[in-house]
Design a protein around this nucleic acid. Structure first.
Lengths: 203, 203
DNA sequence: TCTTTTCTGTGTTGATCGATACATAATTCG
DNA sequence: CGAATTATGTATCGATCAACACAGAAAAGA
């Protein structure tokens, strides 16, 4: 329905993907409309007609990012047979994803808009919510393992989730600084050394 | 010498401090000349006469930040009697500094300008250099301990320095997300759990 | 074919960006 | 004192920001 009128001359989905890459590389503030329209291959009126505003475009872009780039990381977390393998896989997938050289390094959700401001409160708020959801997912996975008796009785799932989420955030900055896959894996090894102490060597 | 001409009507040092706080809170891009001059209590011609440009002002501000805000963190690292206490003190001081409520949360060096761009290449480059220096300082402290026979033979000082520096970077984002001192200390506890595995429980 | 609807390209809007021109005020030197 | 020097306030520069007005183009429905 509603296919009347002149049809859109560009592919909305691929234009959104280009926008996501620009935001990913430059952040919300750093990505100008000129950058966006140039990458998307359209003029600004088309952008506003299709997406509404720069803010709305960013929100759609982060949604696409979560659905497309984060799946390997979070599916590994959920599907790994043990909590240890879940955390190790989660971090290993992160190291792999953050060090790909054919795309921006680090995470759009972590780096997209860190400086709260009145004009962009919505953007910061949305990214914070997504980061909080990620930490909650970590915690839920650990609590599942705890409920199944996989972890020691004194294991603090919330503290552990906080720690591993923070390590992942740090890896975004490490990747932005040019950290190689090997360097990111050194961070993963450090985090898993923490696991050994927290949950025991035989988990 | 050279005290001829009309004297400056504001205190350069305290104006620089105000500028540092603005950059700290808003980042390099997010801090406009209006923000800066308003906080510094001067007009833009005075700013340019005293500091040269926004870029030069930022470089001076980061220098002031390193000299004033980072001293507790890095002196603890150097002066602690053992490597374990050095790392633990380094992270504990970080948790304390990043969660102060009377100033911006997180680290100016870590968060000030993460999105590389042609126009601000100098800024990003300077912050990267400072972050690299910090990681080098960590590594040097660990190597000192290793040379004194304090650490196991297979202890990888470079990998450990990478890990702890990355944890600290993550703590900046954690603090920006409103992480409390207790939450930051949970991250510290996780990092020290890694130490126990890497260097043994009795270090 | 003709009307209606929707999209596209050109051009531009007011606001704000970082950075200065210029005249005046305040100081030192001679 | 007058000349030289430096800082200040006002007012503004060209560039760029996000966003939009408008007219023409391309489709569907009648």
């Amino acid at each position: 329905m509603s296919e009347r009128g002149r049809p859109r001359s560009f592919d909305r989905a691929s234009a959104l993907r280009r926008a996501m890459e620009v935001f990913w590389a430059k952040g919300y503030e750093g990505a100008s409309l000129s950058d966006l329209t140039a990458a998307m291959g359209i003029n600004s009126p088309s952008l506003y007609a299709a997406f509404g505003s720069k803010e709305a475009l960013f929100l759609e872009a982060t949604d696409l990012y979560t659905r497309s780039e984060g799946t390997d990381i979070w599916s590994t977390l959920e599907e790994a047979p043990t909590a240890r393998l879940a955390i190790e896989g989660f971090l290993t997938q992160t190291a792999r994803a953050y060090s790909q050289t054919d795309r921006p390094q680090g995470c759009l959700i972590a780096l997209g808009a860190l400086h709260q401001d009145s004009t962009q409160g919505l953007i910061c708020q949305d990214l914070r919510r997504r980061r909080a959801e990620n930490q909650t997912a970590l915690q839920a996975r650990l609590e599942r393992a705890a409920a199944e008796g996989e972890l020691p009785a004194d294991f603090d799932c919330q503290a552990a989730a906080t720690f591993f989420a923070t390590v992942q955030h740090g890896m975004s900055i490490q990747a932005r600084d040019g950290g190689t896959h090997a360097a990111l894996m050194a961070t993963v090894a450090g985090a898993m050394a923490a696991w050994t102490t927290m949950a025991g060597a035989n988990t």
